[in-house]
Design a protein around this nucleic acid. Structure first.
Lengths: 256, 256
DNA sequence: CGAAGCTTTGATGATGCTCAATCGGTGTGG
DNA sequence: CCACACCGATTGAGCATCATCAAAGCTTCG
């Protein structure tokens, strides 16, 4: 439906679901998507200042990350395959960056050279709004988690969301891989690594979660997890904006 | 409970800084901004489901609010004069609404009737993106606060931000009015009311904050507050997107 | 095998919540 | 005008939660 300018043939853009790369004009070389390989701990900076860089995750799990002056670290958001992250998260308060939590592949697109043109492109601006909105909903949800859930609830919610993403269509439980270390989980959930470890042990002993090894687990009964949470446990929200009646209603993010 | 009246031509839209109301076509009556008066505790729902409603606060302080099943309340964001809130914060997890923390005046615009047209309007989509981005930056900042600051730091940051907003151009301290109750502050900061009260007492006794009465205070030395924080204390970020070089570079939100 | 890096587990303490009592304004009715 | 009720704010006591520090166990990789 949308006229999408194809990427170079060797770069099939499964990553951003055409949200971004369709605005790359194959004829003009001023904007060239970059495929970037990241090892654990690698960072992509430039989330401050004026830049129109975007990253979409192709493989692996990344974190939008920040630190305070004294070294306290907070993971503001997680981004896995098919998630798009905007580099515009500039806030002067503290530095932000995108960090790989495991080996990752990321596609970077910098629209800066064509900013003036794209500003007049309704489809582009809408795509940006889509991304922002999506991120805003997730960040708001996470904020509630940090503000009002206790440590056990936070971990259960986290485990549950992962399990829900990996579950089969019919809800059959499937093994889930924890894509990050205990400390990363802690920094995401506003806890510390020991607390996370203790809670995981507790959940394992209670039978809510079965660990195959340190980084793989199965949730045998997702509803049992749900009953421990004071909120809905949902996979992903109807991403955006069925409001604009141009035929794209009720898009969803992840497709099985 | 709330008296709402159509916005007349004689009411200049100082509220949304032309961000939204400039897309209202005076000739066509399909979109009519409403001026709404709210008393403390009044709510504007419809932050779930598909709707293109926006509110911009004209007077007073409002909160984007949510509750968990067991009644725990979290204020996700505060919105005062000149702030715009989108009703699209739909997430299926928990209900959201806009709540007046004191007597308020809000301007409501529902763009739904013209959604199809506006979806093709780059300026409109960009205005939405502006609002989303602004909100996202603030929400991310607040998320860090809830994730990694202890209770005293949270209160100091909150007090400091209020003081900074009210300070004169040259930084001279001015009296600040606390626009909300202790419990509201607590629900914003992920604490409880008693803890907030205790911390405010502690800050008063330490001389960092001088209270004129229960809801008015002065910060005699803002830098002393800053030294207690592990992050920058900044008034407002360059709101958005100097990236798009069409002449509107470096807009700022509040103007003195 | 050994070293390094996670992870787990334990002991201990600080932080912040809960419950309860009191205080201080504000509004209402006698 | 005063007595009273009501609501929010304050203060205290006690306790649950979670962080810190330390030691030991597991994995991985050279």
């Amino acid at each position: 439906m949308d006229t999408s300018a194809p990427l170079k043939d060797d770069l099939p853009c499964i990553a951003c679901q055409q949200r971004l790369c369709r605005f790359v004009d194959g004829q003009k070389p001023d904007i060239t998507p970059l495929r970037i390989e990241l090892q654990r701990g690698d960072r992509l900076e430039c989330m401050t200042g004026n830049c129109l860089k975007f990253w979409s995750v192709v493989r692996g799990t990344t974190a939008v990350c920040t630190v305070l002056k004294d070294g306290r670290r907070q993971i503001v958001a997680l981004a896995g395959p098919r998630d798009a992250i905007c580099g515009m998260l500039a806030d002067g308060h503290s530095p932000h960056w995108l960090e790989a939590l495991e080996p990752c592949e990321v596609c970077e697109i910098d629209f800066t050279p064509r900013a003036a043109i794209l500003a007049k492109d309704a489809r582009f601006m809408r795509a940006l709004m889509d991304i922002m909105h999506d991120q805003l909903v997730r960040t708001s949800q996470h904020l509630i988690t940090l503000g009002r859930l206790d440590s056990t609830e936070r971990v259960i919610l986290f485990i549950g969301q992962l399990a829900l993403c990996s579950a089969a269509e019919d809800g059959t439980p499937r093994p889930v891989t924890l894509p990050m270390s205990r400390e990363d989980i802690a920094d995401y959930l506003g806890l510390n690594a020991e607390t996370v470890s203790r809670i995981l042990t507790k959940l394992r002993k209670s039978g809510l979660v079965k660990f195959l090894n340190r980084s793989e687990f199965v949730v045998p009964d997702l509803d049992a997890l749900r009953r421990r949470l004071p909120m809905q446990l949902m996979n992903d929200q109807a991403s955006v904006i069925g409001q604009f009646a141009d035929g794209r209603t009720g898009e969803r993010r992840a497709q099985a």
